[in-house]
Design a protein around this nucleic acid. Sequence first.
RNA 1: GGGCGAGUAGCUCAAUCGGAUAGAGCACCGGCCUUCUAAGCCGGGGGUUGUGGGUUCGAUUCCCGCCUCGCCUACCA
Length: 681
Amino acid sequence: MYLKEQKQLAEAIRAALRILYQIDVETVVLEQPPELKFGEFATPVAFELARRLRKAPKKIAEEIVGALGQTPDLTPGFAGFEVAGAGYINARLDRGEFAQAFARSGEVPAPIEALHSLVEHTSINPNKAAHVGHLRNAILGDTFVRLLQAVGQKVDVQNYVDNTGVQVADVVVGLAHLEGLNLACVEELMAELAEDKTRLDFYCWDLYARVSSWYEAVPDEAAARKKLRLGTLHAIEAGGNETAAIAELVSTAILRRHLETMLRLGIEYDLLPRESEILHLHFWDLAFEQLKLKGVLYFETEGKNKGCWVMRRAGNRVQGTGYSSESAGAAEGEEAEQREGPDEDAKVIVRSNGTVTYVGKDIAYHLWKFGLLGKDFAYRRFFRYDDRECWISAETGEKDHPHFGGAQAIYNVIDSRQSDPQANVIEALRGMGYVEQASRYTHFSYEMVALTPRCALDLGYEVSEEDRARPYIEVSGRKGFGVKADDLIDKLVAATWGEVDGRHPELDEREREATAKAIAVGALRYFMLRYTRNSVIAFDFKDALSFEGETGPYLQYAVVRVRSIFRKAGTTAEEALAALEGVDLAPYLSGEGSEGIWEVWLRAAKTTLLLDQCIQTAEPAYLAKHAFQLAQDFSNFYRLHHILSEEDPARKALLLATAAVTERELVRVLAWMGISAPEVM
RNA sequence: GGGCGAGUAGCUCAAUCGGAUAGAGCACCGGCCUUCUAAGCCGGGGGUUGUGGGUUCGAUUCCCGCCUCGCCUACCA
C-alpha cells in the first residue's frame, strides 16, 4: 500500500503529460500536502512545465486534472483530483477502499534485490570495556541487519576483531611490565577477578589508561618504553611465544565480554574474523600479487615515499606507473601531463622496510569478503546463542562449518574518522577491476558519541577550562575517559526496574525484571537511532535515561495501550482486522467525527515506504522518526475516540481495526529496531 | 594548505528530488486522571535557518565568497 498508489499516480500523470503535450518527464515529484484536507498526494509538476509550455501553471494543472478525470482506469483507488493554490495538483485516495486493502494485506515488502549481504559492525579492540560509542556502532549495525532481512536479503553479521594490534599490546605491556605477571600469573589474576565478580574488561579499562600515561610519565624513559611497546606488538603479531599467549588469553576473554554486553541488547553475530588469522594465513601475500599484477600498486622510486609500494588516492590523477580508475579521457590525459615528479599524496601500502600497512591488510580482507581472494579462513565455534552459533576464525578449525564470505554487497559500520582508509580500500577494489563490488561497498559511516562537559564533570573527570566551553568532549579509551556500555545499561535497568516495581506490584519478580529490561533496551536503542548518522551525539545521562517524549518507551507505551484495549474488548488485533470485511468504512474516514482516524491509517501504510528509504540511504533514523510519529498519531486518535464505549457497530469495528493496524505496524518497526513491546508497563 | 562534515527555537535534533504556514522532543508557564494505562493528552510563549551574493515562479535545501567549529590528511595500528 501507499508505495503502490504513489507509483501508480506518478505513472498516470506521466501518461497525461504525454497525451496532452507530447512530453516525457523523467520523474514526477510527489509529496504529501501540508494538510490532509488537501488530499494524500500533491505534485508541483505544473510549475516546472510553465516555462516550457508557456502557459500559466494553474491552466496546466487544470488540464492535467481534466485528463486524469477522463481516464479513471489509470488511477484505480483514487477518488479525485483538484487544482489548489497557484498550480498544485492534489490527489485524493478512496479512503474506504484503501483501508480495507491495507487491513487485509499488511503488505509484505518485496525484496529490492535478493542479495547476499555482509554487515560488519561493533569491531571493538579487545583490550578494554565497550563504551557508549561502541553501542552506537553496534545498534546502528544490528538495526541495519534487521532492515536488510526485512526485505528478504540473506545477511551475514560479522564483528571484526583486531586482536594483534597496538591496543592489545598496550594491555599486555601493562600486565607483563607494570604488574610484572607471566602467563600463569595472568591466568591466576583472571580467576581472582572472576571470583570477585569484577569484569575483566573493566579491569583492563583502567589498566589501559595507566599504561598509556606510563609511556609518557618519565621523559627520559619514554623512548625505551615505546620500544617495549613495539617489541610487544611484534611478538604478538608473530605468535608462538608467551607474550602472544597472554595477548590471546586476555583478548579472547574480553571479546567474550563484548559479546555478552551486546547480547544484553539483543545483538548477535555469525562470525568473528580476527586479524591474527589474516596475518598467519598470509592473506596479504595473495592480495599483494593481485594488486601488483593489476597495476594498482606501484613502486615509488623518488620523493618522501621512495622505496614503498604506494597507491594513488581516489580522485587523484597520476601519470606513468599509476593508473586511472575511470576511463581516461583526453582532458584527463592533459591534466596528467602537467603534473611532474612523484605523487606525494599517494597512500603507502607497503613500507620501505617491507611491512604492510593497515590499509593493505584491509584490502586483502575485503577481497575475501567478496570472495575474490582465493583463500579462506578455518573456523571454530566460539559463542552459543539461543538459536544459533557464533563462529570465530582460526588457523585450523572444525571440518563442518557454514560458508562465510563471498558476499555480493557489504556494509561496514565504522565511524566517520575512518572514511579516508575506507575510501582507499574501495579505490583499490575498483582499480583491480572489481567495479561492481566497489559500487556495492558501503562505508556505513556515523559520527562519534561524545560526552557533554557536564556529564564528564558528573562522572568525576577533570575537565579543562577550554573543554568546558565546548558543546561536547570526545571520549578516549586511552585516557579511560568515557561511559562504559555495561554501566549505562545497568543504570537504565535500575531506573526502569524501580519504575515497574512501583507501577505493577501485582506482577511477579521475573515479569517485572523482563519488563524493566525491555524498556531499558527500548530506551537505549531508540536513543542511539533517533539521531541521523552524521550528527554527533553529545551524551548526557539526563537524555539517555529519559523515558518521556521522543523515546523508546513512548513507542512501547502506545503498543501497551492497544493491547490493553484488546484485552478488555476480549478480542485480538487479527480478529479486529478480519472483522472489517464487508464494512463500508468511507463514511467514518472523512468529515465530522473522523478526526485523527485516517491519519493513523495513512501513517501506518507508509511503513514500507520508510523501510525502502532507510535501506536506500542507509539511514535508520528515518524509521525511528516514523515509528514515533505513528505512536503520536495513535495517541491523538486514542484521546479523540473512545473505542470500547462506541455504540455504532460499524464504527466500533473501524476504531478497533485502527488500534490493530497501529499495533501491527508499530510492533513490526520496533522489531526492526531491535525493540520489543511488553504487555504492560 | 587540501578533503569531508556541521552551523536551524533557550537546549537536543527533524525537514523526502528545490515546493503550500520551517516541525518535534526537552526545558518553562497554564490546564486534563470517576470513561480503553497520566511513561499520556491539550493550550501558550518562543525563528533574520552563521553571513554576503547568485540561480529560480519558489531556497533550510543548489552555486560562489566569507566566518566559526569538528574530523581526516603518518613508512601508527
